[in-house]
Each structure stands twice: as C-alpha cells, then as structure tokens.
C-alpha cells in the first residue's frame, strides 16, 4: 500500500475528525497518520483484505464496490471528508468492499493497529479520536434510520407517480 509522509498536528487540525481534539492530542496522534496520494484506479482497500487501517478522504472521490468482473456492483461514490475503513478498525473483520480512486485522490491513512494498541492502553488522545469515529458512525446510523423509515412508508401518492410518468413520457419520448 502506498504511503506518504507523516502529517503534522496542524495538518491534522484541518480534518473534521481531528478538529475537536486538542493540539496536544493531535501531536500525540500525528505519528500514526500519513498522507496517501492515489492515482486514478488505485485501490485504497481491497474486498476481503485483512487490514485495520482507517482512511480519511481529503481530495478527489473514490468508488466503493463489491465483487469483480461481471459480478461487480458499485455501492457508492464517496466525496471528501468521508471516513473509510471504520468497520474493519472496530470489528476486526476483513474489508467488506473494495474502495478505489476514481481520479487522482488524496487520503490520510491512520495506522489501525497502532490506534487500537493505544486505545487498549487507555491513551486519552486515542480515546478522543475513537469518540469522533463513534460520532461519525452514529450520524450514519441516524441517516440510515431515516432512510428505513421513509422506505417503510408510502413515499408518494398515486398522483405524484402519474405526474412523474407524464413528465417522463413526454420529455424523453416521441411516439
């Protein structure tokens, strides 16, 4: 996996995941973080891979997909500020999907094993960062709850469906 130079505490402060931490905590964590520039198509993680590193996308966009060849299925395209790999970090399971750069992209890699070791030792900086990751996960869970709720209720009336069909039929087709 390509890795770059270790990041400074100031550099980390610009990342939302680290923004709420104190300067002292950021300095303590800086040696676990490194810049990871990627070219088009280069993978961040591969499905099934055993790795616990965490990634923060800072520039560009990445594609999340499962399977390969004819079975490949794109799950999402992720934009900057996103956290990648938190499931493997917390659950210790192999990567559930492949993530690769759509174009040139910049990420910050956080050494997962190092972070886990410090959390296990009760390191306050590592626990603060864990709390921030928890906040991200909680926000995602809340969004998922809203999505589930909307799916369990009729989202449109028949009138809406017919209106949409009418617009589509007349805009996109000439019979």
């Amino acid at each position: 996996m390509p890795t770059g130079k270790t990041l400074s505490a100031e550099g980390l402060g610009e990342l939302t995941l680290f923004a709420a931490l104190t300067d002292a905590h950021r300095r303590e964590l800086a040696d676990l973080c490194s810049a990871m520039p990627l070219g088009e198509g280069e993978p961040v993680v591969r499905e099934g891979e055993a790795s616990r590193d965490l990634f923060l996308l800072t520039e560009g966009s990445v594609r999340v997909s499962t399977g390969s060849g004819a079975q490949a299925q794109e799950l999402a395209v992720i934009q900057p500020e996103a956290v990648i790999g938190e499931l493997s970090l917390i659950l210790g399971e192999p990567r559930s999907a492949t993530v690769s750069a759509i174009g040139p992209a910049s990420l910050v890699r956080v050494d997962g094993e190092g972070l886990r070791a410090r959390q296990a030792a009760g390191d306050p900086a590592a626990l603060q960062l864990a709390w921030q990751i928890l906040a991200k996960l909680a926000a995602r869970q809340a969004a998922m709850n809203r999505e589930l709720l909307s799916l369990s209720q009729p989202t449109t009336t028949a009138g809406d469906e017919v209106s949409r069909l009418r617009d589509k039929l007349f805009a996109e087709w000439s019979f």
Partner: peptide, 9 residues
C-alpha cells in the same frame, strides 16, 4: 408508450 401517454393525460 402511446397508451401510457393517453392514460396519464
């Protein structure tokens, strides 16, 4: 398509 157009109109 033509039946659907008539129907929605």
């Amino acid at each position: 398509g033509r039946v659907a157009q008539a129907m929605v109109t």
